[in-house]
Design a protein around this nucleic acid. Structure first.
Lengths: 208, 208
DNA sequence: CTGATTTCTTAATCTAGGTTATTGGATCGG
DNA sequence: CCGATCCAATAACCTAGATTAAGAAATCAG
């Protein structure tokens, strides 16, 4: 499954409304600045299961999800997958480590369903910082928010049991729980799919 | 070594050399900008065990550690402590959630040994962003780095066993392992002190 | 220096969650 | 529409790490 099999008719057809609204939540752009910014974006269509970033790739862009759903995960030495992040529409995703250092990273990013993303190449992002310094602020703020939720997740993993982590997940991502396979949720909260299945059964039995 | 230079850095007793060097790793400040910045800082001496931020406090400043060592941790519903971060000299520490939202937070920050910190109040930090926009960049970069290491730690917790996490900790923080009590390391890597003790004993036995 | 507090170790027992295997049900791609 | 692949559920058994308890060693405050 190759991401280069783009269907030509999808090119130049993507909507910038969502990404501009995403940005306007933190900084205000003039029409001209909006044009500079959108001019830097690359459009990419990802069929289900297409891989945007492989293990050991150097991450060259941040991705903004317009439609569908991506996921970022690693594969450990026993072949188990651990999901770091799901990215439904209106979310950013990248291998931050690799993006910053430009070293090969260990994150895999792929599409859980047919998806459309906008890519902001690192090179363009750096030009953006000098030409429109407000973007320093924008990315500072979204990185801060990302850090806060990441810290909370770490604390949840340290202090909560599996059923509580599952409950947290359902509460925090009510839309995701409907659409992504249960084994992906298991790989996110840090249990085996079998055990998650057991948890749900126990919960059902208790509730009647 | 010129006495007058030294005096300029010790305005009210604490040394700004370290914090200015910390900042110069990412942005270049003029002498005037340095003066504006250091003028915003509050000095605070913390004897061992002193608490800088209590649970349910609103976090009103970022702290930069000049000497000693702080730790940020939460207390779960069973009374167990979970260490989110250690902050030896040259590190920043804060309850990011509370600092951003100005809501009461759950993080406790205290001193593991006699320490000196410089506080940058949130209000001053915001003034800094408008008066010296380079600081947007500075805090974007350190937040990005913090996010990267936090993500790696989360993945380690999901994919590694306890002894591997301990080995990682020793490798990443060789100076800390010498000076902080073992039970604090246990509360960081996510095991009981008893189990960490067992791990070390097993490791010693195996290595001869 | 000294008692008090905190920290480390060891060991027996217990449990949350993992492993393996099997089955039936969904979903997908052709 | 049909076979292939993937996914969810259940159950028997297994292990990493928790719990409890108790003594030894280290560190601290007066």
């Amino acid at each position: 499954m190759c991401i280069h099999d783009k269907h030509a008719l999808y090119l130049n057809g993507m909507d910038y409304t969502l990404i501009l609204k995403n940005i306007s939540r933190h900084i205000a752009l003039t029409a001209k600045e909006q044009a500079v910014f959108t001019g830097m974006l690359e459009e990419q269509v990802l069929p289900r299961k297409a891989v945007l970033l492989h293990e050991n790739d150097i991450c060259r862009a941040s991705a903004f999800v317009v439609s569908g759903c991506l996921r970022g995960y690693t594969i450990d030495s026993n072949g188990f997958e651990h999901v770091l992040q799901f990215a439904p529409p209106d979310w950013w995703i990248a291998d931050m480590y690799s993006l910053i250092t430009q070293q090969p990273g260990h994150l895999v990013i792929d599409a859980l369903e047919d998806s459309e993303v906008l890519l902001l190449p690192k090179k363009e992002q750096e030009i953006l910082y000098t030409r429109i310094p407000k973007f320093e602020r924008f990315f500072r703020i979204i990185t801060e928010n990302s850090l806060v939720s990441n810290r909370q997740r770490l604390l949840d993993n340290l202090s909560l049991g599996a059923q509580e982590r599952y409950a947290q997940f359902c509460k925090r991502y009510p839309t995701l729980i409907e659409k992504i396979p249960q084994k992906q949720v298991a790989a996110y909260i840090g249990v085996t799919p079998e055990f998650l299945s057991k948890l749900k059964a126990a919960w059902l039995k208790k509730s009647r």
